[in-house]
Simulated scan of single mutants.
Amino acid sequence: MESYILQATGLSKQFRGFYAVKDVNLRVRRHSIHALIGPNGAGKTTCFNLLTTFLRPTTGSIQFNDREISASDPATVSSMGLVRSFQISAVFGQMTVLENVRVALQQKAGMTWAFWRRDRALKVLDARALELIAMVGLTRWLHTPAVELSYGRKRVLELATTIALEPEMILLDEPMAGLGHEDIAPVMEIIRSVAKGRTILMVEHNMKVIAELCDRVTVLQSGQILAEGSYDEVSRDPAVIEAYVGGAND
């Protein structure tokens, strides 16, 4: 019997009479990499915001680990093990790479008060911080302020801070957005490594990335599920091909 970590049932979001998402039934298998794709305006962002409780649904329910979360707030959901990273890099620019990761570790350890303690009091977190920084290939920039990093390195730093929270499930919003061609393969390997023992749901436009990384793909169009299956299955679906007007094969 398959285990689903995240399930949405009859999920809808209405804005002034317009349905951005309508009657979406989505199940994400535990320890899988699942993609949510669709043409522009398909409702991906709204669906993502609903699943991460940044928006409240008009109707429907969301369960994470068999617990209803549709009325919860993002902080509560994060503490339950469902963590989101954003399309725009969200790191503290004036803090170093090490400090950014250490702040995330402080939050996980319930040490947010430690902002006001001397730096040496936080050394206990350094071993894990260094391990995470090495995982994403940023050891060379350990003491570099995040603002000085390239866009691609800021994105992988955000991944490191997300992993520091030790989530069961990570939702990635267009992790390849804005990356140079040379950065895509390394970030894919990081995501593949991060996925071991975790579940990932990602919104992504790069179909080559989807084909190589994802176990299952859900296609949205006009706020509703158009198709679902493996990448090979959905990429051959006539309705999906029509929706993308050939764009999925670019």
Rank of each mutant, 00 (worst) to 15 (best):
L149T: 02
T162C: 07
P167F: 00
L149E: 04
P175C: 05
V156W: 08
G180A: 08
A164E: 02
H143L: 08
L179C: 00
L157C: 10
S150G: 08
P175Q: 06
P175E: 02
A164P: 04
W141E: 15
L149N: 04
E168H: 14
V156R: 15
T161N: 04
D183M: 06
K154G: 09
L165K: 12
M176T: 15
I163Q: 05
P167D: 02
L138N: 03
V187S: 09
G137D: 04
L179F: 08
I163E: 05
E148L: 12
R153L: 13
M176W: 05
R153E: 14
L138G: 00
E182Y: 12
P167I: 06
D173F: 05
K154R: 15
D183K: 12
L159E: 03
A160Y: 06
E158P: 02
G178W: 09
A177R: 10
G152K: 13
G180T: 10
P167S: 06
A185E: 11
E158M: 03
S150I: 06
E148Q: 15
L159K: 03
R153G: 09
E158H: 04
E148C: 13
R153F: 15
I170T: 06
A185F: 12
M169T: 13
L179M: 14
G180E: 10
L149H: 00
G137V: 09
E158G: 02
A177Q: 07
E174V: 14
E182A: 13
L172I: 12
A177N: 10
W141K: 15
L138V: 00
H181R: 12
G178Q: 06
T161E: 13
M176A: 15
E148D: 11
R155N: 07
R153S: 10
H181A: 05
E182F: 14
A146Q: 02
M169D: 11
G152N: 11
L138T: 02
M169G: 10
T144E: 04
H143W: 10
W141D: 10
E174P: 07
I184H: 04
A185M: 11
Y151L: 10
L159V: 07
V187D: 01
M169K: 04
E166C: 12
T162P: 00
M176V: 14
T161G: 07
L172C: 08
L159W: 03
D173A: 08
V147D: 05
G137M: 05
T161Q: 09
T139M: 11
T139F: 04
